[in-house]
Amino acid sequence: MFAFVMRRLAVAIPTLLLLIVFSFILMHLAPGGPFSLERELPPQVLANLNAKYGLDDPLWLQIWNYLTGIVLHFDFGPSFVYPDRSVNDLIAAGFPVTLTYGTLRARFKTR
């Protein structure tokens, strides 16, 4: 049983890392940016925001910082939508509801 779990982890962890890198690259290929939703920002304000969130760093450094934050600190970074909250805060707020729903669904699942 232990060998089975280890084999599954040996496949799952690199797969998750590849999916994270792939989605990170896709987000950078998409037009626009996180601060171009509603109205045009002055160039200096946009430069300050990019510097604050590390978006002016080279792409390889952004990916490295993101992956090390996730793997070493379980930190998904700041939320661009809710400036006063982190992504971890948003996950923590929704986790109890998701856990309850998943538990109830598994308990009452019909076969």
Score class of each variant (00 low, 15 high):
Phe4Met: 06
Leu19Ala: 03
Gly32Tyr: 13
Leu29Phe: 11
Leu9Gln: 12
His28Lys: 07
Arg107Ala: 15
Val71Gly: 14
Met1Ala: 12
Ala3His: 09
Met6Asn: 12
Pro96Glu: 13
Val87Gly: 14
Phe80Ser: 04
Asp84Gly: 10
Met1Tyr: 11
Trp64Ile: 04
Leu26Asn: 10
Ala93Lys: 06
Leu49Pro: 00
Phe76Tyr: 13
Ala12Phe: 14
Ala51Leu: 05
Met1Glu: 11
Arg105Pro: 04
Val87Asn: 15
Pro96Ile: 05
Ile70Ala: 13
Leu17Met: 12
Gly94Asp: 10
Thr100Ile: 11
Glu40Lys: 03
Trp64Phe: 14
Pro34Tyr: 12
Phe108Trp: 15
Asn48Ala: 13
Leu99Met: 11
Tyr101Lys: 00
Asp57Trp: 05
Arg105Ile: 05
Arg107Val: 08
Ile25Lys: 02
Pro43Thr: 01
Val87Ile: 15
Ala51Asn: 11
Thr103Cys: 09
Ser23Phe: 04
Ala30Tyr: 10
Leu16Cys: 09
Val21Gln: 05
Ser86Met: 03
Glu40His: 08
Gly102Cys: 11
Asp56Arg: 05
Asp84Cys: 06
Pro14Gln: 00
Thr15Asn: 07
Gly33Tyr: 09
Tyr53Ser: 02
Met1Trp: 10
Ile13Gln: 01
Pro96Cys: 12
Leu72Phe: 15
Asp57Gln: 03
Gly94Leu: 08
Thr68Cys: 11
Leu90Ser: 04
Phe22Gly: 03
Arg39Gly: 09
Arg39Cys: 06
Gln62Gly: 01
Ser36Cys: 13
Leu29Trp: 11
Gln62Asp: 02
Pro43Phe: 03
Lys52Phe: 01
Leu49Met: 00
Thr98Met: 05
Arg8Val: 02
Val11Pro: 03
Met6His: 13
Leu26Pro: 05
Asp75Arg: 04
Pro31Gly: 03
Ser36Gln: 11
Gln62Lys: 00
Leu99Pro: 07
Phe35Gln: 04
Ile91His: 14
Phe24Lys: 02
Lys52Leu: 00
Pro31Leu: 04
Tyr53Glu: 01
Arg111Asn: 07
Pro96Trp: 15
Phe24Gln: 02
Gly94Pro: 06
Gly32Pro: 07
His73Gln: 14
Ala51Gly: 09
Phe24Met: 03
Asn88His: 07
Ala92Lys: 02
Leu55Ala: 10
Trp64Met: 07
Leu46Thr: 00
Leu16Lys: 01
Gln44Tyr: 10
Val87Thr: 14
Arg85Val: 07
Ile20Gln: 03
Pro96Lys: 11
Tyr53Ala: 01
Asp57Tyr: 05
Met1Lys: 07
Gln44Glu: 13
Ser36Met: 12
Phe95Thr: 00
Gly33Trp: 04
Phe74Cys: 15
Leu72Tyr: 14
Val87Ala: 15
Ile13Tyr: 08
Tyr82Asn: 14
Tyr101His: 00
His28Ser: 09
Ile63Ser: 02
Thr98His: 09
Asn50Thr: 00
